[in-house]
């Protein structure tokens, strides 16, 4: 039996049709399938995002990137909405700015954004006043938010604004989950799930304001399916998920990003050849990441790549003869 046609080379992709649209009065032409965000970026218009990442399927939940499309009843998420011919898009009029400001303010009033890169500037730019919702409610005790069930809730206390404040979860030596900082962008769930790792150790549980990232029955990570690839940390936009090393160093004030250098090398383990970006502070590796645009990793690593580099810098024990070789 002979196959009539045998595909040898990679099948040619049909060249994509171009779509013409207008963003903030500027005509843009982009290949079909490009998002509004992508189209805006080609002409240097930057729309802020929080839940968007190049390597993940857009979930369009944070609503920071909303823009106005003429003819649309409501604003549309620029990170996921594909550009259409003739679209007239406005990325920064009063209506857009209002929603963006409110979204940022609502987040800032309920979530600890202190380690979200660029957030302070954004809150300033949009003149957000998170305090106007009242003083933040006292932090919940550990585990309380994880046990919330849906249905009727206790009426709000008029003296406070509800928040996500709660103690960080430190249940293993590799990473810390500080859900007081979680904006529920779903990125970690996507990275752990079908977009990359397919381990599904975490998912969104609960509903509404009680929705949270959780393992099954909120068990600890060591009791969960977690394989400690840290791909969730890599995509977390707020520092809610953080390597323990960084968490500890930030805790004792020794984390100094401005003093860190980085170099790209190749992971020393298996033969896949993942690029590791090693972040070094005072000649010590403090963190390993991988570039998002790397075709092999898409920013992902496994437990060995992400955390298994400590062997190169174990300090020789005092009095040891093995200068420079470290311990076992």
């Amino acid at each position: 039996m002979t196959t009539p046609f045998v595909q040898i080379r990679r099948p040619d992709r049909e060249p994509k049709k171009m779509v013409e649209l207008q963003v903030d009065g500027i005509a843009v032409s982009v290949p079909e399938g490009t998002t509004i965000l992508g189209a805006a970026r080609t002409i240097g218009i930057d729309i802020p995002t929080l839940c968007y990442l190049e390597t993940l399927r857009p979930v369009n939940v944070c609503r920071v990137c909303m823009v106005e499309v003429e003819g649309s009843r409501v604003l549309v998420p620029s990170c996921s909405r594909a550009a259409e011919p003739g679209m007239i898009v406005r990325t920064g009029n009063d209506r857009v700015k209002h929603t963006r400001k409110m979204v940022l303010e609502l987040l800032a009033s309920s979530v600890d954004l202190s380690t979200t890169p660029g957030m302070a500037a954004l809150l300033d730019e949009y003149e957000c006043d998170p305090e106007r919702y009242g003083p933040p409610a006292p932090p919940a005790a550990a585990g309380v938010r994880d046990a919330a069930v849906c249905g009727h809730h206790t009426p709000p206390n008029p003296d406070f604004a509800a928040t996500l404040a709660q103690p960080p979860i430190v249940d293993n030596d590799l990473y810390v989950r500080d859900y007081a900082k979680c904006v529920l962008c779903y990125k970690c769930v996507e990275a752990c799930g079908v977009d990359h790792q397919n381990t599904f150790a975490i998912a969104v549980a609960g509903r509404g304001f009680d929705a949270r990232i959780s393992t099954e029955l909120a068990v600890t990570l060591p009791d969960s399916a977690c394989v400690y690839c840290g791909n969730c940390i890599a995509v977390c936009p707020t520092g809610a998920l953080m390597a323990k090393r960084e968490f500890d160093m930030r805790g004792d004030g020794s984390w100094h990003e401005e003093k860190q250098t980085s170099a790209d090398t190749i992971c020393p383990y298996c033969g896949v050849g993942c690029t590791l970006t090693l972040h070094v502070q005072d000649n010590e590796i403090v963190k390993a990441t991988s570039p998002l645009d790397n075709g092999i990793t898409m920013g992902n690593l496994c437990i060995k790549g992400r955390f298994g580099w400590r062997f190169v810098q174990r300090k020789p024990e005092a009095g040891s003869q093995e200068a420079g070789t470290g311990a076992l």
């Binding site: 979204v103 849906c150 529920l184 969104v204 509404g208």
Partner: peptide, 21 residues
């Protein structure tokens, strides 16, 4: 609305709480 918000998007998830407050 606060009870029934699915919790996905910020305006609804937090907005319904702030409205009720």
């Amino acid at each position: 609305f606060r009870d029934e918000s699915c919790g996905q998007c910020v305006p609804c998830r937090v907005g319904t709480v702030r409205q009720e407050e």
